[in-house]
């Protein structure tokens, strides 16, 4: 029971801490997703708004922790998902209020001057094969190994463990049970590559695009490592804690590198895409029917969001969802 509470408290605490720092993870000249003077966040009004947001976020956190404690005793099946959802919605609401205030009282309107490179070479900024092929080689090697040692695989083996460390889901020695994790890894890796490919063609050139594409390339490694380790568990005794440490170190490394790159003078200081604030609904949803770009760099955090006014964006979102669900659909018996 104590471990279960930990599994509810940890995600909540993590989300609460992240939200305390979210307003700071943005480019110069953007504050609570609104366009402002680059010096505004350091002004008295800027600091007051940040303090007020953080206080509201802390209150939402306390409220959600109370709800989580209540649900842990009455509805433990909900786990951390419902409290986390409530926390995100509550702090999201506070963020929206701040966006509105900053936009209406302190917002600037930058001229929408756009520039296009006339060099065709710009289009070929590509995914690096030498970096993305090794994970697929690792998946193929694991598949060959499993095939070669098929008879040594137990008829039933654990594939999922509960918080108490005891297995709570088992798989059989058949195609889905043995190769399922590798198939999932392949689909997830292809999804990352597909997203990187689409970004290079359907977004504007920027430091954010460079960082996101590189992040997606490198993300193949922890993804592949996870599923290859899981696929080999019936044959090998791999200490899961070691795999978890390697995985965590890898992901932390990727984010540290991305953060450094984005906050470098050519990153966050890069002039943001000159979009009118009115295209950003609640400061986080981009809706611009005149913009053919499907992906636009987010105003807060690292990465991209879609242009919700573009029909193709919805096709892309549904496509990503279907592909992400594909392994589960294929493996259904």
């Amino acid at each position: 029971m104590k471990l279960e509470i930990l599994f509810i408290v940890l995600p909540l605490a993590l989300v609460a801490i992240i939200f305390q720092f979210v307003p700071l993870l943005t480019r110069r000249g953007i504050f609570f997703s609104a366009t402002v003077d680059p010096e505004f966040p350091q002004s008295a009004d800027g600091r007051r708004l940040l303090r007020s947001y953080r206080l509201q976020a802390a209150l939402w956190t306390v409220l959600t922790f109370a709800l989580a404690a209540l649900s842990a005793t009455t509805r433990p099946a909900f786990g951390a998902s419902l409290p986390v959802l409530l926390l995100v919605a509550g702090i999201g609401f506070s963020y929206w209020l701040k966006f509105r205030e900053v936009h209406e009282r302190y917002g600037l309107r930058r001229p929408e001057v756009r520039e296009a490179s006339l060099s065709p070479a710009e289009e070929t900024a590509s995914i690096r094969p030498w970096l993305v092929i090794p994970p697929f080689v690792a998946i193929a090697a694991a598949a060959f190994y499993l095939n070669a040692h098929w008879s040594q695989i137990p008829h039933q083996f654990p594939v999922h463990w509960g918080v108490n460390g005891q297995p709570n889901r088992w798989a059989s020695r058949d195609f889905a049970g043995v190769y399922g994790p590798l198939l999932t890894a392949t689909i997830m890796d292809l999804l990352c590559l597909g997203f990187a490919w689409a970004l290079l063609r359907m977004s504007r050139k920027s430091m954010m695009r460079y960082v996101t594409v590189r992040m997606l390339e490198v993300l193949l490694y922890p993804l592949t490592l996870t599923f290859v380790v899981v696929s080999l568990l019936p044959l090998m005794r791999i200490p899961l804690w070691l795999a978890a440490v390697v995985l965590f170190a890898f992901i932390a490394g990727i984010f540290f590198w991305s953060y450094r790159k984005i906050t470098a003078p050519s990153g966050l200081d890069e002039v943001p895409e000159p979009q009118n604030d009115s295209y950003w609904k609640a400061g986080v949803f981009y809706y611009n029917p005149h913009d053919p770009a499907i992906f636009v760099s987010k105003r807060v955090g690292i990465g991209y969001t879609v242009n919700f006014a573009n029909k193709m964006s919805w096709v892309v979102l549904v496509g990503i969802l279907l592909i992400a669900l594909l392994p589960a659909l294929l493996m259904r018996k």
């Binding site: 756009r114 296009a116 710009e122 005149h290 913009d291």
Partner: peptide, 12 residues
């Protein structure tokens, strides 16, 4: 560059 590339870059 292609029409698509220029259009995306210029936001038109």
């Amino acid at each position: 560059p292609s029409v698509r590339r220029i259009a995306v870059d210029l936001g038109v």
